[in-house]
């Protein structure tokens, strides 16, 4: 799910670049240097996840994992997704360079929202963590699809038509990502719960 060059009007592409630059600066300022290795690992996972294709009739859709990135990185998720998208665009030719801002907003904002929702819902128990992970993982995909339809609407497409089509196409991805987020959260809660804590909390404990 990447927007290519020439799909969006230039005004929307420029607005996307401006918005993503502002959010990226905010995200960098919220990032602790101690989290760099964790961000690198999650960014690598996000970068490679787009190569995992789910066959769907004559075409296929690939994993997006904005929800999982948001769960693991919190406010730093936008930097991670922006860097991953730049490298995907340069190395894989996924998405256009001119649409990089719009793509970053389309994937980064759902990641941030999913991170906030996860932190809001996670509670203290394993069950609540897993449920919050499943919801946040699915929410990332749903928000990304809605933002895609919103961006394509600026290019003259019908919002509801695109949203329905993209949502139906990404239903298998939604299911897979919810399950992956649930399993990941469950595993990390038992093995290394520190990774599920947001950076400010981590800092306050020291």
């Amino acid at each position: 799910m990447h927007i290519s060059d020439g799909v969006l009007p230039s005004s929307v592409a420029l607005a996307g670049v401006a918005a993503s630059a502002v959010i990226a600066v905010w995200s960098v300022r919220r990032t602790q240097p101690e989290d760099f290795p964790k961000i690198a690992v999650v960014t690598s996972a996000f970068f490679v996840a787009s190569l995992i294709h789910v066959p769907l009739g004559p075409t296929s859709v690939h994993l997006l994992i904005p929800g999982l990135v948001g769960i693991l990185l919190g406010d730093s998720a936008f930097v991670s997704i922006g860097l991953g998208l730049v490298l995907q665009s340069l190395l894989f030719q996924f998405g256009g360079i001119t649409a990089i801002g719009a793509n970053a907003c389309m994937m980064g904002i759902p990641a941030l929202v999913a991170g906030w929702i996860f932190r809001w819902l996670k509670g203290e128990t394993l069950t609540r963590h897993v449920v919050a992970g499943i919801i946040a993982g699915g929410l990332g995909v749903v928000l990304a699809v809605l933002l895609l339809a919103l961006l394509l609407m600026s290019g003259g497409e019908d919002f509801l038509g695109v949203a329905k089509l993209a949502m139906v196409a990404h239903l298998p991805v939604l299911g897979i990502e919810s399950a992956v987020a649930g399993f990941t959260v469950s595993f990390l809660y038992r093995v290394k719960p520190d990774l599920l804590r947001s950076p400010p909390t981590l800092k306050a404990e020291r």
Binding site: P33, P37, A40, T43, F47, V48, L51, L87, L91, F92
Partner: peptide, 22 residues
């Protein structure tokens, strides 16, 4: 389609940038 070289190149860039940051 992107091959294994591009995948490792991207991962290398990401870890390299994290290394520079650290």
């Amino acid at each position: 389609k992107p091959g294994i070289q591009e995948v490792f190149a991207g991962i290398g860039y990401i870890f390299g940038l994290a290394g520079i940051g650290l």
